[in-house]
């Protein structure tokens, strides 16, 4: 600030505090809702202070959040958290692995159809799941991948943004290092593992944070390819729990599940904030 105006400082803080409150209010209400019995929750107005059913609700959400349906057993959020974790880790690791070697091939080799490969990868940017939803579903169904982890993960791991990011990183690695490695008799893979990988460590970590959140928050894809209750991701499960038709939804359990679904990605963002911001501003630009 150029001028020293104490009232302006106060105003700034006030605006920020209001911003933070608006951002946090829905989460707070969700937490409150997850600690009450349904009976207290449907009172008008709903309570504003946490209740005493925290342990009960979270236990029920974890073990039997999605109740018994016709021919299906009750299933808890524990299983869905595991599914989401497998999916998020699979997508993050898979994207990074195949993108880093693809970028390495494009930057460090000259070969026929190099630009063709580059453009093919670029095209994936223009084809999000939403624009090819039915045919992609059909491919996955034909391959027998419905309701499997492979079906949840593999179709999402092609990544133009990750490939481009690694390309930028590799282009910034000095040529002298490559020359030195070659003089010392290192082959391309030796050079990749001993020099390129260690030099890209922070970028890999930053990208991992972003991709973990991306994978965890996937919605449309798991929605269409999972029908088996035991393969649902946590995000889909919440929607499933609310879609009860005319019955009263068990809001306290739904909200406990929502808290559980938010927790892992929020913890990742808050604890790895620097990497997160780096990954975000680095991959999108």
């Amino acid at each position: 600030m150029v001028e020293n105006r104490p009232w302006l400082t106060w105003l700034t803080h006030a605006v920020l505090v209001i911003g933070v409150l608006v951002v946090a209010f829905p989460i707070y209400v969700t937490f409150v809702a997850s600690t009450h019995a349904l009976f207290d929750l449907v009172q008008v107005p709903m309570p504003l202070w946490p209740g005493d059913k925290f342990v009960d609700n979270y236990l029920q959400a974890l073990t039997a959040g999605l109740g018994e349906g016709s021919g299906t057993q009750a299933i808890g959020a524990a299983r869905m958290l595991f599914n989401s974790l497998v999916m998020a880790l699979g997508i993050a690791v898979g994207k990074i692995a195949i993108s880093i070697i693809a970028a390495f091939a494009i930057v460090y080799f000259r070969f026929p159809f190099r630009m063709t490969a580059f453009w093919l990868i670029f095209i994936t940017l223009m084809l999000p799941v939403e624009v090819r939803i039915l045919p992609t579903y059909k491919v996955v169904a034909d391959l027998g991948l419905l309701d499997t982890y492979a079906g949840l993960i593999v179709p999402l791991i092609a990544s133009a943004t990750a490939t481009f990011m690694f390309r930028q990183v590799f282009l910034a690695i000095p040529d002298e290092l490559t020359e030195a490695a070659r003089i010392d008799g290192a082959g391309p893979m030796r050079f990749f593992f001993d020099i390129v990988l260690p030099l890209s460590r922070t970028n890999i970590a930053a990208l991992f944070v972003i991709l973990f959140i991306y994978g965890w928050n996937q919605y449309l894809w798991p929605l269409i390819i999972t029908t088996d209750q035991s393969m649902l991701t946590i995000i889909i499960a919440i929607q499933r729990m609310l879609a009860v038709g005319d019955d009263q939804a068990e809001w306290q359990i739904v909200m406990a599940t929502a808290m559980l679904a938010m927790l892992p990605p929020v913890v990742v963002v808050v604890t790895m904030q620097r990497l997160f911001v780096k990954g975000l501003t680095g991959t999108e630009k």
């Binding site: 692995a97 070697i101 693809a102 093919l120 045919p135 059909k138 179709p155 092609a158």
Partner: peptide, 17 residues
């Protein structure tokens, strides 16, 4: 090195499109 990326791209992106 390019095979995994291109395989996924062709099977799950280009072909469905």
């Amino acid at each position: 090195l390019l095979t995994p990326q291109l395989a996924v791209t062709l099977v799950f992106f280009i072909w469905p499109a």
